[in-house]
Design a protein around this nucleic acid. Sequence first.
DNA 1: CTGAAAGCGCTTACAG
DNA 2: CTGAAAGCGCTTACAG
Lengths: 346, 346
Amino acid sequence: MATIREVAAVAGVSRSTVSLVLNDSPLVKAETREHVLSVIKEMKYVPNNNARSLSNKIMNSLGVIILSEQGDDEPDGFKRETGLYSSGILNGISDGLADTDYSVVIERYNVKKSGGELPKLIRTRRVDGAFVIGSLYDREFIDKMKQSGIPFCVVGVGLPETEYDVVWASPEEGVFLSVKHLMEEGHQNLCLVNCPETFISHEDRVRGIREAEKKLGLRFDWNMAVSTESNTGEGGYQAIRKIWESGYRPDGIVTANAHIALGIMRYFHEHNVRVPQDVSIVAYEDNALCDYAYPALTAINIQKKLCGIKAAEVMLERLECIGKPYSVVKVEPYLIKRNSVKTRND
Amino acid sequence: MATIREVAAVAGVSRSTVSLVLNDSPLVKAETREHVLSVIKEMKYVPNNNARSLSNKIMNSLGVIILSEQGDDEPDGFKRETGLYSSGILNGISDGLADTDYSVVIERYNVKKSGGELPKLIRTRRVDGAFVIGSLYDREFIDKMKQSGIPFCVVGVGLPETEYDVVWASPEEGVFLSVKHLMEEGHQNLCLVNCPETFISHEDRVRGIREAEKKLGLRFDWNMAVSTESNTGEGGYQAIRKIWESGYRPDGIVTANAHIALGIMRYFHEHNVRVPQDVSIVAYEDNALCDYAYPALTAINIQKKLCGIKAAEVMLERLECIGKPYSVVKVEPYLIKRNSVKTRND
DNA sequence: CTGAAAGCGCTTACAG
DNA sequence: CTGAAAGCGCTTACAG
């Protein structure tokens, strides 16, 4: 590998000059710059990032901390969670950073198992900033992250905060959109299968229903709001069983995610309830599961990739100006119609 | 941040000594080591990785190159591919490296769009080694990677080679296992819905059938082997349509992936063919889609996470001993029974 | 077993 | 606009 020294030698300038053109300094005459650049290209010179970082304290790396849960991807059947969630966001971040000099380094991190230690990425200060993906964090984690002094952006989930950057899609709006669609297609007797109460988004969804009551004139029977034990197919299956066995017969169901929706579908399959003829379903967090289900699930798409791209933008701005006020950018969810909602024409 | 200098000062030793204990050198007296270690802990000293790398040429980073395709995750419905593939492997790699000092940096890379340029990770020499995930590579890419001098390991797919390390699950074995299961459950009239012919695994699957002919006495009608246009639901749908419209009526179908299997299921749903009563299906690359399908798909699980873990091991060994012969480790696929295959008891 | 010294390849005031 | 020099925080022969 060529060094800056050699480049300087063949270009007939000092190392400083090469360094200045490398760093787009305005101090270099255009002519000189062009010349140096051509030599660099010719020699296929690429600066040593370690030397650079050592001297300027910029790592040129951004971390992605993927909050994971115990047994995240164990193959334990219908109950399992999947790694679907983070990949769209990760792709977005990666794409959003593709034209920069930042490399993206990932770390899976389990808040509960961490014993209070921050992710290695942060502790060893290998990154200039970090993205936090996933909802499995708590106050304490956030506090420690702040103490680290490394800027971070929470993406995909979370509540609007003012103590850090966040890019998210609001479950409240997702629920609202779901209800709106169901009502427009003539449904009146809705049911909400919410996530477990322990999740921060639980309340957010309840607000979505309230909004619909207010703005759309929804008449909602709160006995029709249930929470799952877990965000899984099994969770959805059991939740709808409770509803069904209690004798309730909603004509439209709003769910908290795709797995839950599929669990509900399974219950219906087994009990000869037809979707969408007898009951309609809207899923949340549209993904391949919705697409490939039968019937294909009408779903709220929360634009995960776009969330990632926006997060990259927010981070880049943050690094540009470390003291600027925190951003809260909302990414609008949209509804994608497939075949799990009975329409007025059906 | 404390530096090695300060640690040395409070420990009352020279910087070299601190460095030596940092690097587990046997040159340091046990007593001294303990003392230095305790000071390090107390001061919460963490070595500057850039300084370290600058001097010893070790990056302490491993790259994951995720081969992606144009429009990888565009939301264009039933035809789309998903990011499901790489995440299991990525998790495995990440876990396999969790107890080391390596950080893992990812880069999405499109061979076709690269214009012959290697991934930035490689060009800028930011990593000590790289994992290559995905089947979208060609001879030229491999050659260039080899020229870079950075060791790499192809994981998840590929053919046994001797010019680089590879960790993979053999589609041949997957097909063989599928056929074996179907035959054991009394199926005789099998159909293979293979991937597009352009994929390297296409031939491998054909070999799987041949093996079954030889070892299991399968009688296979080669008119019942079709290839999809793409590895998608749409691909599977169209492929089985061709078969069905030709009048063939297999009693068991072996597929090249889960999306294809689900496309086939959709065709059957629409044509009132019952799974598994009328025809059985075995999917490949078990994932959440199989689990949540209705009926849940019996599938070949290729242990992606394990592939990742093994790849991490292979890489660690490679870095330990750069000249050792290339490894080809096969990860055994296994069949997971769900409800898409009619059993003898049914 | 330990210390003094050179060197890794950059950046960045500072002089000119 | 350009060059000489110090410094970033480590590692690694080399002496001792």
